[in-house]
């Protein structure tokens, strides 16, 4: 990356600048509450630029999102390992911002499930598009979305987990044209 010329570097930055807002939102969702989303974006960007330029990627956004998701999963795994093997060293629970309690419910989902729900319900992507973004199969995305929604309903007080093909009364309106292949 350092070998790039000034002009190419500016192009790279402009590309990142265009992606930044969406990447940060994505990172904020998939990361646990004690993790700064910008740290994840930073790590993903550094790891990616260590390998190639952003413009060399077919889909820089998808690549960086996967990197962010992996980094978040790694962080969650390391923390779980520390809790399991070093309970006496773990100390008090990490202090997090005071968010509404129902927001912390989302934190109980796996980062990948969070990412699926976020991309589907907030970003409005269809299952096929999510699958391409996260490197999963469409079926896996569908299954993860269904299970994650069911769990959220249970955690938030709902009793009947809705099936994936039922009307999503609590979800954002979908762009049917993009989900038609589901």
């Amino acid at each position: 990356m350092n070998d790039l010329g000034e002009g190419r570097r500016n192009e790279e930055f402009e590309l990142f600048d265009q992606l930044y807002a969406r990447l940060r939102r994505f990172a904020a969702v998939v990361a646990d509450l004690d993790v700064d989303p910008d740290d994840l974006v930073h790590d993903a960007l550094a790891a990616t630029l260590g390998r190639c330029a952003l413009s060399d990627l077919d889909d820089p956004s998808a690549y960086l999102k996967r990197s962010i998701l992996n980094a978040s999963s790694n962080h969650r795994r390391r923390r779980a390992t520390a809790r399991r093997f070093l309970p006496h060293l773990a100390g008090p629970t990490v202090t997090v911002d005071d968010y509404p309690s129902d927001l912390s419910v989302i934190d109980r989902l796996a980062p990948t499930d969070r990412a699926v729900i976020f991309l589907a319900d907030v970003e409005g992507l269809g299952h096929a598009a999510i699958a391409q973004e996260l490197g999963l199969s469409a079926a896996a995305v569908r299954k993860r979305a269904s299970r994650a929604r069911a769990r959220l309903r249970r955690e938030l007080g709902g009793t009947e987990p809705a099936r994936d093909n039922e009307p999503r009364v609590d979800l954002v309106e979908h762009d049917v044209s993009r989900t038609g292949e589901d």
Binding site: F13, D17, Y20, R25, V41, Y99
Partner: peptide, 19 residues
């Protein structure tokens, strides 16, 4: 949805230029 929106906007962005 609202919760996800709130979560997506949490924290103060450092900005693309800084990162």
């Amino acid at each position: 949805m609202r919760q996800l929106e709130e979560r997506a906007e949490r924290g103060t962005p450092r900005g693309a230029a800084n990162l």
